[in-house]
Computed example of a mutant assay.
Amino acid sequence: MSIWTTFHKWGSPRWFYQFSGRLLPWLGGLSLLLLIGGAVWGLALVPPDYKQGNSFRIIYVHVPASAVAMGAYMMMAIAGAIHLIWRMKLAAMVMKAIAPIGASLTFLALLTGAVWGKPTWGTWWVWDARITSVLILFFLYLGVIALHQAFENREAAAKACAVLVIVGAVNIPIIYWSVEWWYSLHQPASIRFIGESSIHPTMLRPLMATMSGMYLFFAWAMLLFTRTEILDRERNTRWVQDIVCSGDKKPESRSVL
């Protein structure tokens, strides 16, 4: 099977719906295991930080939420570009599905950052470069949601949202490098994929567990939201009507291309 054929196969809403249904239980179970295990490990078993004491433990929620919120936006921008270039309707569905998940994760990152900032900096909020750019990310997610609601025509809404997310993608490197480019209360990145991480291994291991769990949770939620969007947009097709009539049982195998 050629790469082009595989690409179009993944772009089939019916094939995506059937394939993603087999992934959901695994993604949900693994994400739950990693999130609970990593949280218990980090909150109960890791010793206090020598500077911040126990307040540092919010890192096991704040950092995963922040990282996945940025990754989700980049995935949304890629989906928007695919929709604009190849007119793939599944990409538009994925883009719409990601927006509320990303907005929720960004809000969680801002909230936990404020809770962490109070004992660390003595204030809930400062117009710090990174905090401000993450706030802009939250508004970008809300903008995508609002654009989808503003258009009656789904294709027009998808095009407008695609342009917004692609332009807004410039904010992601700003968030990441803001602590290097401007004066910031935030410390530089503790986790480095190139070079040695500055965070102690006893703190890093449960953090990696919760980050992995958060990424898997995002994948689970994204697939679930996309499947819902597929059923809504394809409700007049025979295969969706077969699913509804059979109580969401798998329809008989047919060509998806």
Rank of each mutant, 00 (worst) to 15 (best):
G113P: 00
V94M: 05
R235A: 09
A221F: 07
G168W: 02
R238S: 15
A44M: 08
V46E: 09
T123K: 12
Q52E: 06
G38T: 10
L84V: 04
G168V: 01
M76A: 14
W121P: 09
R57C: 08
R233S: 12
H186K: 11
L23S: 15
P188C: 04
I174D: 00
R14Q: 06
V163W: 08
G195M: 05
Y50G: 06
W121F: 10
A81H: 05
E155Q: 03
C161H: 13
W127F: 09
C161E: 14
C245G: 15
C245Y: 14
R192M: 11
Q187S: 02
A209P: 03
L24E: 09
R87I: 02
M203N: 14
W4S: 04
T226N: 02
N153P: 08
F56A: 12
I101C: 07
N153W: 09
W239S: 09
S253C: 09
L164R: 01
W220R: 07
W127Q: 13
L30R: 03
V167P: 02
L35Y: 14
R87E: 00
P188T: 05
T132Q: 08
M211D: 02
L164C: 01
I194S: 06
T123E: 11
N171E: 04
L23H: 15
P13K: 14
L33F: 15
G29Y: 11
R233F: 11
I243D: 02
A91R: 03
L84T: 08
A67E: 13
L185W: 11
W26I: 07
L142H: 01
F139W: 07
I172L: 07
E229Q: 09
R130Q: 01
M74C: 13
I98W: 09
A221P: 07
Y17N: 10
M1K: 00
L207A: 03
M74H: 09
F151Q: 01
A189D: 06
K9Y: 07
P201M: 03
M222T: 14
R22T: 14
V68W: 09
V144P: 02
I101P: 09
M70V: 03
A146M: 00
A81N: 05
V61M: 12
R22Q: 14
L84F: 05
A114H: 11
I59W: 11
V126P: 03
I101L: 10
N153K: 13
L90K: 05
V244F: 14
F218D: 12
D248M: 10
I131A: 03
R14Y: 01
W15C: 10
V165W: 03
S197P: 00
P119W: 12
D128V: 02
A39D: 11
I98M: 14
M1D: 04
D242F: 10
Q241Y: 12
R233W: 08
A79R: 06
T6I: 10
A150Q: 10
N54Q: 10
M1A: 07
A146R: 05
I59R: 11
S253V: 10
V61C: 13
K89T: 15
